[in-house]
Design a protein around this nucleic acid. Structure first.
Length: 421
RNA sequence: GGAGAGGUGGCAGAGUGGUCGAAUGUGCCUGACUCGAAAUCAGGUGUGCCGUAAGGUACCGGGGGUUCGAAUCCCUCCCUCUCCGCCA
C-alpha cells in the first residue's frame, strides 16, 4: 500500500500518477472513507476516555456502597454507547483499509507512459540475433528432445505442465541452478533455502492475495499456498520486523521450484518449455534504504544480465511502460532471451522496485536517522527462470550435427561439451 | 495423533477483576565520577492509530465473549515445550 499522506496532502498528484497505470480506483470516495474513519475513531476514543475516567473514580469507592451501585447503573449506558461507537469506528476503519488496498503503487517518473505491452521500450540489447543460428529449430522439434524431457509421463503422474527432466537434461538443470546461485553469491547475495509453501498472511503481504488467489495452488486443509515465486517466502522473512539502518542493504538469493496455475493464459505459447505449471528459478531479493532503491534496481538488473552474458545468450532489456507495469511495482525491467528456433523473445527475468509498497503491506521497517521506524524499499528479480533459459540454449546452440553446445560457464557442474540425447 | 505445561516489553521474569503500558532484574542510550575503562550513581529507553499540538486511545500469542471495569474469568484458534505413538 502507498503512504496515506499522498491521499491527504496531494490528491491531484496521486490521481495523475495513478492515471498513468491501467488500474482504476475511486480516490474521491476513498478520501470520504478516510474522513469518516478518522471522525468515528476520534469520537469512539473520546467516549472511551470518559468511561475510563469514571472507572478510575469507581475504583476508589467502597464496593457495594450506595454510591458505587449508583455509579454502576449510570455507567451501564455509557458502556453500551462505547461499544456501539467502537463498532462503528472499526467498521469504518475496515472499509477504508479494504478500499485503500486497491490503490496501486505509483509509477516512478522515469517510467514511460504507455497503454500496454506494445509501448514497452527496448532500452538495450546484447548479442547477435539475426542470421547467426543456421541450424536452430524450436527446442520441442529437436529429434531427441522427448527422450530428455518427458511430458507425457508428467501428464500421467501429475498433469500438463509438469514434465520430467531425464538424465543429462536433469543434470543440466542442476548445473544452471548451481551457476545462478554461485554468481549471486559472488554479487553479494546471501543464499537461503526457503519454504515452498506459505500461509495466507505471507501471500497477502507480497500482494498475491487477495487479487491473484486463482493463480496459486492451494491446500485448503492447511490454508497453505504453493509459492508462485521465491519472492513470497524470501520477502516475508522480515515481515513485522524493524531492521537497523546499518544492516541495509540486505541482499538474499534463493533457488526454489515455482508453481503457477496459469489460469486464463493456458493454450497460448505453451509448447515445450515456454510455459509450465512447475518450474525452477533463482530469485534475488533486496531490502534497501529508500534513498537509493532506484540505483539498487539498476545493479539488480545488471546482476541478472551478467548471467545471460556468461551463458552467451542474446537478450534485450525492456523498460516496462506505465500501462503494463504491475500493481505493486514502481519500476520494472524485463529481460527477454532470444530463442532462435522459435524466432521469438522469451521473458526470463523481471526486475522490479516496489519502493515502500510491499514493505507497508508486509510491515518491514528500518530505523531512520531520526530513530523513527519507516518502511524499507524492497526489490526483486529473477536470476533466472530455468526452463526458458534451457529452451534458448537448446535452440541457439544447436549445431549441424544436431548436438547442443553446452555453455562453458556450466562446465564446473556439467562436464560435457555437447548434449545430444 | 494422544497426555500434560505454557505463550507478558530487546531478553529474563512478577502480576488471578479496578489506581497496570504493566513491578523487578538485565541489556541499550545520555550524563556524573575517571587520564581512560571497569565499578558506582542519576536520568532516559516499545509500537500502531486519532490529534497542528497539548494530549488521547489501542496493544500482555490471534479472534470472540462475560463485566460498570479484563494481562487477570469464559469460548475458540494458532504456536512453543515435555512425555508417548508414528515417520523422512
Amino acid at each position: 500500500m502507498i503512504d496515506v499522506n499522498h491521499l491527504r496532502q496531494d490528491l491531484e498528484g496521486l490521481k495523475t500518477a495513478i492515471a498513468r497505470k491501467k488500474f482504476e480506483c475511486d480516490l474521491d470516495s476513498l478520501v470520504e472513507l478516510d474522513k469518516r474513519r478518522r471522525e468515528t475513531i476520534s469520537e469512539a476514543e473520546q467516549t472511551r476516555a470518559g468511561q475510563k475516567a469514571a472507572n478510575t473514580e469507581m475504583s476508589q469507592l467502597p464496593k457495594g456502597s450506595p454510591e458505587f451501585l449508583a455509579k454502576v447503573a449510570e455507567m451501564k449506558e455509557l458502556a453500551g454507547k462505547v461499544k456501539d461507537l467502537e463498532a462503528v469506528a472499526k467498521d469504518a476503519d475496515e472499509q477504508f483499509q479494504e478500499a485503500f488496498l486497491s490503490v496501486p503503487n505509483l509509477p516512478h517518473e522515469s517510467v514511460p507512459d504507455g497503454k500496454g505491452e506494445e509501448d514497452n521500450q527496448t532500452i538495450s540489447a546484447w548479442g547477435e540475433v539475426e542470421g547467426d543460428f543456421p541450424h536452430a529449430v524450436p527446442h520441442y522439434d529437436i529429434p531427441w528432445f522427448e527422450k530428455l524431457i518427458d511430458f507425457p509421463r508428467g501428464v500421467k503422474v501429475a498433469g500438463a505442465g509438469f514434465p520430467f527432466y531425464i538424465g543429462e537434461m536433469s543434470q543440466l538443470v542442476r548445473a544452471l541452478i548451481n551457476f545462478f546461485l554461485e554468481e549471486a553469491d559472488k554479487n553479494g547475495y546471501q543464499e537461503v533455502h526457503s519454504p515452498i509453501v506459505v500461509n495466507a498472511a505471507s501471500a497477502m503481504a507480497t500482494g498475491q492475495l487477495p487479487d491473484k488467489e486463482g493463480q496459486m495452488y492451494v491446500d485448503q486443509n492447511e490454508g497453505m499456498y504453493l509459492i508462485p515465486t521465491a519472492e513470497v517466502p524470501v520477502t516475508n522473512f522480515f515481515r513485522d520486523e524493524i531492521l537497523n539502518s546499518d544492516e541495509l542493504p540486505v541482499k538474499r538469493c534463493a533457488y526454489t521450484p515455482c508453481f503457477r496455475r496459469e489460469a486464463g493464459s493456458w493454450g497460448k505459447d505453451v509448447r515445450g518449455l515456454n510455459r509450465l505449471h512447475q518450474f525452477d528459478k533463482v530469485e534475488l531479493v533486496k531490502w534497501v534504504h529508500p534513498d537509493n532503491s532506484f540505483d539498487e534496481l539498476e545493479s539488480l538488473r545488471k546482476d541478472a544480465e551478467g548471467l545471460l552474458q556468461k551463458l552467451g545468450l542474446p537478450y534485450r532489456v525492456l523498460l516496462i511502460c506505465s500501462g503494463d507495469i504491475g500493481f505493486p511495482h514502481s519500476k520494472q525491467y524485463d529481460l527477454d532471451v532470444w530463442a532462435a528456433g522459435q524466432k521469438r523473445w522469451l521473458e526470463v527475468s523481471s526486475c522490479s522496485n516496489f519502493t515502500d509498497f510491499q514493505a507497508r503491506r508486509a510491515n518491514i521497517r528500518f530505523r531512520g536517522e531520526d530513530g523513527k521506524p519507516q518502511p524499507v524499499h524492497t526489490l526483486n528479480g529473477s536470476a533466472l527462470a530455468i526452463p526458458r533459459v534451457l529452451a534458448a540454449i537448446l535452440e541457439n546452440n544447436l549445431d549441424s550435427e544436431g548436438r547442443v553446445k553446452v555453455p562453458d560457464c556450466l562446465r564446473t557442474w556439467f562436464d560435457k561439451d555437447f548434449l545430444s540425447g
